[in-house]
Design a protein around this nucleic acid. Structure first.
Lengths: 372, 372
DNA sequence: CCGTCTTCCTTCGAAATCGAAGATAAACCG
DNA sequence: CGGTTTATCTTCGATTTCGAAGGAAGACGG
């Protein structure tokens, strides 16, 4: 699937184009060439024509879709104690998504074997017969070197340091394999839900604080470590030493883990970040106050980045994103302190892609590899 | 000059390619197509063949250059009290650069007329006869809306707010016109001097503190205001209100203007940022101490941005960049506090492009418009 | 000095792409 | 309802681009 055909298929798969005319506009190819290639793609069974779209004033376009029988992608979002696993078709649409408990502290081999076994189960139970698996991807809650597919100095993944995840998966699957930081995948997944927004900051507020950056419509990796905001020094009265060795990191005050231990110290039992949200929603004043101050600290850090990057939107996801006070205090801090020029058109909102954003992002990046 | 021919010419003009073979590698076109197009470009007088390059193990390439008679670009770097003006050929090489005193506080019309008159003088004195002017560009020490070419809420340019600079220049010159923030142009100019570095932060330390950002090899504008770091809140003991209305902005402590007024208060006479550098180099302890603490504050702000953007290099230019203590204290702060993953391959260095970086950047962006 | 290698560049038939013109289909509007 | 407008899609000859093969020019090594 190379060259022009791959480009066209990708445009349809990613939802950017739905008709031959749109393909012509977006690909830069002549309409006649597009028709030719599309016929071929329909001939090979990768594209299907499906009804007609909505008119833009003239003849209605004949809607194109990636064939549901063209292939499947198996994707995962590994978390500390839970993983989300799913099967997508080649348009990135989920067929099935499941959340299962797991424990990455068991180490990479065991965890990845478990993941593969889970994929097999999903394929057996939900994979339409005869539809081939075309790619495998997973999000990792730690830094990943994009070139080698290795985990690099993760803070909360014992036994994973420098483990060649992509290589390990590649040995089992003779398919394109994607390994990427979970916040980065989440950002890619969100980006598809924010058409017209080419510059996004996507915050993952869960046990840790992650951030993925979309610049010019594409994931920004820098040298592999871009998007870290959790070890920024924040201004506080107290002083706490973070796991990274420095003092007063954002993570030590505003991450789900930090909130949980603070609440526990105050005698309020919480076992996972969602419990913090529940406490806030139940009107537990200590929880609300803590979440508020976490939002303020996060917002103050974002202030610097908003002035610098001048994004179209800040999207907040992760398990803490359902805590309303978090969002509003982030908003307050950003709007108060940023330059008017930077916040004039800035939207600060919760995830549009929902809890599957990471899986959708994995699908999106995998498509590039599969259709490349 | 559209399509494939423009692409080829641009590759030669920007110095990326020097031979047909290199053009083929970089453009993705077949070698045969390149030859065809290059012959045409030579035929129209835009390219010339000039001797041969160095062998890479086989036959020596026939070196290609943009013809010196293909055209000229007139570029300017407007500052508060001085402007640099220059003529470039279409490969972006300066024919002549001059620095002249000016005063932007006289307002846009008068300043732009003065600029145009200066261009005319330069063309008369240094422009080879018969070589046409092909584009005009200028850097502005304030925010510029890239789409409209207007100045937007500048802090130190009385009378310029919302003035349509591009339109005004376009009325005088029937040519491509470029109007862009000076730090952004400087970043583009530096980028050409840092091959292999696709992600750069370029700091302009002069009267103000500007920053241009190169992401993936291209200037990042965001919604037009990207790159601002001067109004970030810094941690200090004292408290100062900035011109933007907030307190403790970086600019209020670490800009050349702030250093000048602090030195003046201590009875040391300085009239421009270069005087501060001179005082440092003369071993005036107050000056050195001030510059050190400015560097530390700047470095602390950069810390956040380095973790987030994970650039290949931070380049420091502007008139304060020759103060060695500034550079070293920025380095110290960044290396001390950033994540090891982010600083592992990070270079922090002074400008390679020198004082003409802004002019070179203007030339580079203008080329895109001229050859587009 | 002479053969071999590498790289650069051109030649020429094959293939892909373009673009103008026309056919098709639906919205819009008196 | 029928003409007008708008947009989508196809047809087909002209143009561009490709790519394999070969010639040109120098490096390298005996």
């Amino acid at each position: 699937m190379r060259g022009a055909q791959g480009d066209l298929l990708r445009l349809v798969a990613t939802g950017h184009a739905e008709s031959r005319a749109e393909l012509a506009r977006l690909s830069g190819l002549a309409a006649s060439s597009v028709s030719l290639r599309v016929e071929e793609l329909i001939g090979t069974g990768l594209l299907v024509e499906e009804g007609s779209g909505t008119s833009r004033g003239g003849r209605r376009p004949r809607r194109l879709r990636v064939s549901p029988t063209a292939g499947l992608l198996a994707v995962a979002d590994l978390g500390a104690h839970h993983a989300r696993l799913g099967l997508l078709d080649l348009s990135g649409t989920p067929l099935v998504v499941e959340e299962r408990p797991c424990d990455i502290a068991l180490g990479p081999e065991e965890t990845l074997d478990w993941m593969a076994a889970s994929f097999d189960e999903l394929l057996l139970a939900h994979g339409p017969p005869g539809v081939p698996l075309r790619g495998v991807g997973t999000g990792i809650p730690g830094p990943v070197d994009p070139a080698s597919g290795r985990v690099v100095s993760p803070s909360r993944m014992p036994g994973w340091n420098n483990f060649p995840v992509a290589e390990h998966l590649g040995a089992r699957y003779d398919l394109p394999v994607l390994v990427e930081n979970d916040a980065n995948l989440m950002a890619v997944g969100e980006a598809r839900a924010w058409p017209g927004c080419d510059n996004l900051m996507v915050l993952k507020a869960g046990s840790g604080i992650g951030c993925g950056v979309i610049v010019d419509g594409r994931l920004h990796r820098g040298r592999g470590a871009a998007g870290d905001i959790s070890h920024v020094r924040v201004r506080t009265d107290s002083s706490v030493v973070c796991s990274c060795g420095h003092s007063d990191c954002l993570e030590a005050y505003a991450s789900g883990a930090a909130l949980m231990s603070a609440l526990t110290e105050q005698g309020i039992a919480v076992g996972r970040p969602a419990d913090v949200v529940a406490a806030v929603n139940d009107g537990v004043p200590e929880a609300t106050a803590l979440v508020r101050s976490a939002g303020r600290l996060i917002g103050e850090v974002l202030t610097v980045l908003v002035n610098f990057l001048n994004p179209d939107a800040i999207v907040i996801g992760g398990s803490l994103s359902t805590a309303e006070p978090l969002i509003s205090s982030i908003r307050a801090a950003v709007y108060e302190r940023c330059l008017p020029l930077a916040t004039r058109d800035l939207e600060i909102a919760v995830t549009r892609a929902g809890p599957d954003a990471t899986l959708l992002g994995a699908g999106s990046l995998l498509l590039d590899a599969v259709l490349g």
